[in-house]
């Protein structure tokens, strides 16, 4: 057979996210006078990318299936609040409180999508409102604070370990297990997946639960980092994650083209971008404008017109 065409074609689409990351790094290093790659700055970038990376890795499973989740920021806020409440009894309780509450909310998202058969876009829009209601009830118009002892938990070592674990586990499940492959299969064609023996409903639910739990963990770390649980916790999480996913090249429609490197590359690109803009002294409005433009362009470039299925 045609052995000539066997070599992996260097597809612009595959390489583009890496190019983007490198471009961003070089550009800001030059423009800020070399301040990007100082230990202090790299620490700040790591702190920022910690949240985006973990959330985007979990989100990549949801996207691979062809779904979206608009409620993740609110889930983070609720988990953060639950952690703060639990911490009043005992700081160690905050850990399971955050993860379990996140997982439960994620389970609910799955329930709404699979059993009530609401498309994920509309479904998570609805659950977001419900979760916000829960949040407001829990916070009663104010904020909660963490016990001072907890604030010391957020060491660089711990964060790096957690990030590494998430990346390794995520990569393993995404590429080397039936679960990850089933996610991509469902994204490619849910009906064909069903008729090939994939437990479509269960897999989809699982992606939401995992995302919920991951975001719950982030709620805990947010509490540790800021010492506060408030209504605005996690408010820009979703936008950052979407941008990261798209900048990394994750296709909106999911399916076979979803690669695990996408959330990794995308998250770091977002962090370097965000950080770089701060180094240049841009205001939040400028940042949002630029993020918006990049978002739009990235969608335009990467949108797979061949597979223009509506988000399921």
């Amino acid at each position: 057979m045609d052995k000539i065409a066997k070599g992996k074609r260097i597809d612009l689409k595959t390489v583009f996210p890496f190019l983007g990351l490198i471009a961003v790094m070089i550009f800001f290093q030059a423009v800020s006078g070399g301040r990007v790659f100082t230990p202090k700055n790299l620490k700040a970038i790591l702190n920022d990318s910690f949240f985006i990376l973990i959330a985007t890795v979990a989100f990549s499973f949801v996207m691979a299936v062809g779904n979206l989740d608009l409620s993740m920021g609110t889930v983070m806020a609720v988990s953060c609040t639950c952690a703060a409440v639990a911490a009043k009894a005992s700081p160690m309780l905050a850990i399971p409180a955050a993860i379990i509450s996140g997982g439960l909310l994620g389970w609910f998202n799955g329930f709404v999508h699979v059993h009530m058969r609401l498309g994920s876009l509309i479904g998570t829009m609805a659950t977001q409102s419900i979760f916000t209601g829960i949040l407001v009830l829990l916070l009663d118009g104010g904020t909660l604070s963490a016990p001072i002892s907890m604030l010391r938990w957020g060491t660089m070592g711990l964060k790096l370990t957690v990030m590494l674990l998430v990346v390794l586990l995520g990569g393993y499940f995404f590429n080397f297990t039936a679960y990850g492959k089933s996610c991509k299969a469902i994204g490619s064609s849910a009906e064909a997946a069903r008729l090939s023996g994939v437990a479509v409903g269960r897999v989809k639910s699982m992606t939401f639960i995992v995302l919920g739990a991951a975001v719950g963990l982030l709620g805990l770390f947010s509490l540790i980092r800021t010492g506060t649980a408030s209504a605005t916790t996690g408010s820009d999480l979703m936008m950052n994650v979407w941008c990261a996913a798209l900048l990394g090249g994750l296709p909106l429609s999911g399916g076979a083209a979803s690669k695990f490197r996408a959330p990794i590359v995308g998250s770091f690109t977002m962090s370097f971008l965000s950080n770089g803009m701060t180094l240049m002294g841009l205001s939040t409005h400028d940042k949002q404008l630029i993020q918006g433009i990049i978002f739009l362009l990235t969608i335009a470039i990467s949108f797979d017109r061949k597979n223009m299925t509506v988000i399921k």
């Binding site: 471009a23 550009f27 841009l282 400028d286 404008l289 630029i290 433009i293 362009l297």
Partner: peptide, 13 residues
């Protein structure tokens, strides 16, 4: 995209 990145940043600047 690269051009816009640059322009956008310059404009912000």
């Amino acid at each position: 995209l690269s051009a816009v990145l640059v322009l956008g940043c310059l404009a912000g600047c």
